[in-house]
Amino acid sequence: MLLSVENLSKSYPGPEGPVPVLRGVDLQVQAGATLALRGESGSGKSTLLHLVGGLDRADGGRIVIDGQEVTALDDAGRAALRRETIGIIFQQFNLIPSLTVAANIAFQARLAGRHDATRAAELAEALGLTEQLDKYPEQLSGGQQQRVAIARALAARPALVLADEPTGNLDEDTAAVVMDQMLSLVTETGAALMMVTHSPDLAGRLGRQLHLRQGRLA
């Protein structure tokens, strides 16, 4: 089992006391599997993704990724997990604006000590970025920026890819193309994918769908 989530809970402070966002979520993902997380706004999809990615700390419950208990790790341990095991793709791309496309693609792989120039070039070619490698993110369209983010996540050869509305900022046609490329590459690398999306069509292209409603899996 690559990912195991047990009885996960999380609240955020509100004006009238803590507001529960996740209320005892249980979830398991096999290596190489793909999973879509759906739900209304505020249902806790992104929070679950952030907790799995070690970007936030749970109030209760347990998360284990590839044998490591995420919920027991300190800041440095969670950073190491993200660096070496997880690839994250955000809706807002989150590229480093001062680095070129090539440097952005190679960045996480270099942090993880797994940089492979050939692999980076292959990803760039597969995503149609070969002509853009020397450009800076601000010189790219939104679709191109998201492709760079996908290449960056996959270049480090993560076991688990987390994607938070990866096409949410793209028009319909571009979103379809980017999605095709992402799924194809994820399948090719053998990584597991957990993706948050509102779109039933996109969710339908993944192996499994889960619905979050008021902090619980429906």
Binding site: G53, D75, A79, A80, R83, I88, I96, P97, S98, L111
Partner: peptide, 16 residues
């Protein structure tokens, strides 16, 4: 600020 947040999400610890 955004870059630092990205660096952290990509696996650089705050201390480093």
């Amino acid at each position: 600020r955004a870059m630092i947040r990205t660096l952290r999400t990509l696996g650089l610890s705050l201390r480093r």
